[in-house]
Write a protein that binds this DNA or RNA. Structure first.
Lengths: 234, 234
DNA sequence: CCGTGGATAATGTCTAGACAAAATATCCAT
DNA sequence: ATGGATATTTTGTCTAGACATTATCCACGG
C-alpha cells in the first residue's frame, strides 16, 4: 500500500487530478523521476505503467508521457441482484413465477436482436414478477439456454428468482445491456400501474465463454427504480 | 503487444475465461510459471499483477493466486457526447438554446439532490434542445457553476451544446448519474411527442477535484435513444 | 484438546543493469 | 527547398538476483 511505487503513482495522480498538470501536459521523463525519487527506473516505470493502464496517462516513445485528455465518458453501473436490492431496502421480497415453458428457441426471435446470441434448441422460458413489500416491483421475462445451464431444467423457480439462482450456479463471463424507456403496455395490470406509465426496460444478454446463457427483459415502473452509475475516472 | 508478459497474461486469462480454471481454482505459483516459461520471476509477476489489478485474480500470500469469483455485476456504460452520437449516425446535428439565465443557485434546489453537490453563488442556467435530422432528440436543462468554469459566462451556447463545450474546456474528474423512466410531461411539445410518452431521464452531476462543475438533466424520448452497457468482466 | 510459536512457502517490492523499438530531430546530398 | 539517411531520446521489455512481508502449517507444550 505505501510502497514507493504506490507513492510515486499517487503523487503523479494527485498532480493530474488537481489540475496542476492539465490534460495534454507532459509529465517528467522516467529518467527525471528516477533522479527525483532516487530509485531504480523499474519502480518509476511500474508506477507510470499502472497509471497508463488506468487511462490517466498516455505514453509515446521518444516523445514522453502525457496527461490523457478525458475521452468518452464511461461510468460503471451496478446491476445487482434484485432480491439483494430489496433486501438492502429492508423490505420483504418474493418472486412469483407466472409461467414456465420449454422448447426450441427458433420461435422466439426476441433474443436474436443481438449478434452472437444464438440460443440452442432447448430453452427454458420463464415469466415472473418480483414483489417488494407486497407491491409488484419488476416484471421479468427470461430465456435460459439449457445447453449452458442444464440444471435449470430441474430447478423450482416458483420461489427463487432465476436471476439469483443463475448468479450462484452458472458463472458468466460477458454480458450486454440495453436500457430503454417505454410504456407499460400489456401486462401493466400485473405491475398495478396504468398502461401508459413510463417504465424502465432493462434487457440483458449473458454469455459464458461466448456461449449464450440467458436473456432477460425486466420492466420497472419508472417511479420505483433508479439506475445509478458512478463515474470511474478513466 | 506480443511481449512475453502479455503472452503469459493472455494464456492465463484464456484458461480462466474458458472455464478450464473455474472460480476459486488455484493457479500455478510464480515459481512454477517461471519454470514453465523459462523467464525471470519479474515477468511472470507483472503478468499476474496485471490480471489481479483487473480483478480476474485474487492473490494471497503464502496461499497462492486464485481465480476470483465474479462478485457484483458491474457494467461499463458509455455516456458519450450527444453531438458525437448524432454525427456517428450520419445525421445532421443542431443545438438550440431556449433559455439562458444567471444567478445564485440558492433558489434552485434541483441540483442539491445529491450529497456533496453544493453549487456556488454564480450559476449559469441553460435550457436547450438537441436536434437530430431536424427532429428533436433530447431536451436538456443544465446548471454550470461559474466558479468552476468562469469562461462559460462569455461563451455563446446558441449553437454549440454546453456539454460539448464543457468536455473540451473544463475537464472533470468525477461524475454521478441517475437514470430513470418518466413521462414527457410539460415540455412534451418541444420534443414533438405526447405528454404521456415514456422518456429516459438521465441526470448527471459532475465534479472537478470535489468541486461541483455542472448538473444536467436530459430527457430522451424512449423510442429515440438506448443506453447500451457492455459488461467488462471485473 | 487447545493454543502458541516458529518454520516455510508464497507473494510484494526493489535494484542496477541490458538491449529493443519507435518516434522525433538533425544533417547531408540532391 | 526537399527527401532520405542517421543519430538521439524516450519508452518497452527483460534478467537475475535480493530482501521484506505474511498467511499458513505443523509441532510442541500446556
Amino acid at each position: 500500500m505505501s510502497s514507493l511505487e504506490s507513492r510515486i503513482r499517487s503523487d503523479l495522480e494527485g498532480k493530474i487530478r488537481s489540475g496542476e498538470w492539465p490534460p495534454g501536459a507532459r509529465i517528467p521523463t522516467e529518467h527525471e523521476l528516477v533522479a527525483q525519487y532516487g530509485c531504480a527506473r523499474m519502480t518509476v516505470h511500474k508506477a507510470i505503467t499502472a497509471l497508463a493502464a488506468g487511462g490517466l496517462i498516455e505514453r509515446r516513445k521518444k516523445a514522453g508521457s502525457f496527461v490523457a485528455r478525458p475521452h468518452v465518458q464511461t461510468a460503471v453501473i451496478e446491476i445487482p441482484d434484485i432480491a439483494a436490492v430489496i433486501a438492502a431496502r429492508g423490505e420483504a421480497y418474493r418472486f412469483d413465477l407466472l409461467q414456465r415453458a420449454r422448447g426450441p428457441a427458433a420461435t422466439l426471435d426476441e433474443a436474436s436482436t443481438v449478434a452472437g446470441f444464438d440460443l440452442g434448441d432447448e430453452v427454458l422460458v420463464l415469466d415472473g414478477l418480483h414483489v417488494a413489500a407486497g407491491r409488484p416491483f419488476c416484471r421479468e421475462h427470461r430465456l435460459i439456454d439449457l445447453a449452458a445451464a442444464p440444471e435449470a431444467a430441474e430447478t423450482d423457480f416458483s420461489t427463487i428468482a432465476p436471476g439469483s439462482w443463475l448468479l450462484g450456479h452458472i458463472p458468466w463471463t460477458q454480458a450486454r445491456h440495453r436500457i430503454t424507456a417505454c410504456s407499460a403496455g400489456p401486462g401493466a395490470e400485473l405491475l398495478q400501474i396504468g398502461r401508459n406509465t413510463a417504465c424502465l426496460r432493462v434487457e440483458r444478454w449473458t454469455w459464458r465463454a461466448s456461449q449464450p446463457v440467458t436473456f432477460v427483459r425486466q420492466l420497472f415502473p419508472g417511479d420505483r427504480y433508479d439506475l445509478v452509475a458512478e463515474f470511474t475516472p478513466d
